[in-house]
Simulated scan of single mutants.
Amino acid sequence: MTTSLRPCLWFHDNAEEAMRYYVGLFPGSRIEGIERYPDASLDRHFEGMAGKVLSGRFTLDGMPFTCLDGGPAFTFTESISITVACADQAEIDRYWAALSAVPESEQCGWCKDRFGLSWQILPAHLDELMTGPAAIQALMGMGKIVISEFPAADGEPRGQ
């Protein structure tokens, strides 16, 4: 499937490090290309950016992204996040361990990585786990989602 949509991620000065990290984490991922800032004498906006990423293109598990090193003018906020739909608890645990770097940002499956980007690490079947008020209450008490901690539809603990 081809899409014309491609989110762009603005990093302070570590776009290439982030691309390499994400590509190494998600199967079916690759860096497509990196253009670097030219010599600062070409434009005042390039001052101090020589060699940094002017435009990086990469794909994570089939989803295309663009990124750049833009300096400190803008930072990531939780208003934008990337959702990872996980097949099972082992996959949740793997992505959570790799991406969660800011404990105070963890809630309901949301975490923030070492680059400041927010992620939602969720079971692909979350809708099936959300069986009523007890399930919502369980979710609200979680940082990392633990599937076995959701009550079953009959209200009994789900178990392992």
Rank of each mutant, 00 (worst) to 15 (best):
E35R: 12
A18S: 08
R94N: 13
E16R: 05
S55N: 14
T77P: 07
L126D: 08
V102G: 11
V53H: 07
I145A: 12
F58E: 00
R44I: 13
S148T: 01
G70I: 05
F26D: 00
D39K: 06
S55R: 14
T83N: 11
D69T: 09
S118F: 04
G132R: 09
E149R: 13
L60S: 09
G70Q: 08
G116E: 07
A153H: 09
I92M: 05
D61N: 14
F65D: 07
L117D: 02
M63A: 12
P27T: 04
D93S: 03
C67A: 15
I121M: 05
Y37E: 07
Y22G: 02
D13Y: 01
G70V: 06
L42H: 15
E47D: 13
M130Q: 04
G132I: 11
W96D: 04
T131N: 09
T131Y: 10
F65V: 09
H45N: 15
E104I: 10
E128A: 14
G116D: 09
M63Q: 08
G109H: 10
G33M: 01
A97H: 06
G71S: 07
L117A: 07
V53Q: 01
A50V: 12
A138I: 03
P151M: 06
G51I: 12
E106K: 08
A98Q: 03
D61K: 08
P27I: 10
Q137Y: 15
A98N: 05
L122C: 09
S105Y: 13
C111K: 00
W119A: 07
